[in-house]
């Protein structure tokens, strides 16, 4: 049975909280929504950023996702 969006969101946040490295690639989230197309997963990840549950971390050439509390802010 397909997962609901809420279940997928929860799985994505759980994954970002438990991962060995705080930053995850978008592809790392695909497994949280096995029935979805990657572009749909991307939309959910970006919506989580808007809600403040995840945040972007960018090297300039690559963008990754992280749980805000796990990221060292260069300015603090």
């Amino acid at each position: 049975m397909a997962l609901s969006v809420e279940e997928i969101e929860a799985a994505m946040i759980a994954k970002a909280e438990k991962s060995p490295k705080p930053q995850l690639y978008i592809k790392d989230f695909y497994a949280c929504a096995p029935d979805m197309k990657p572009r749909e997963v991307k939309k959910i990840a970006n919506a989580l950023v808007t809600k403040g549950k995840l945040m972007f971390w960018s090297s300039g050439s690559t963008t990754m996702y992280a749980v805000p509390s796990r990221i060292k802010d260069e300015e603090k």
Binding site: T50, F56, W57, S58, S59, G60, T63, I71, E74
Partner: peptide, 20 residues
């Protein structure tokens, strides 16, 4: 230069390249 970071403008995931 440190590489990367979390800076940006609200709602955008690109357009700003953070450098410290």
């Amino acid at each position: 230069w440190k590489h990367g970071g979390i800076v940006g403008v609200f709602g955008y995931g690109g357009g700003i390249v953070g450098r410290y």
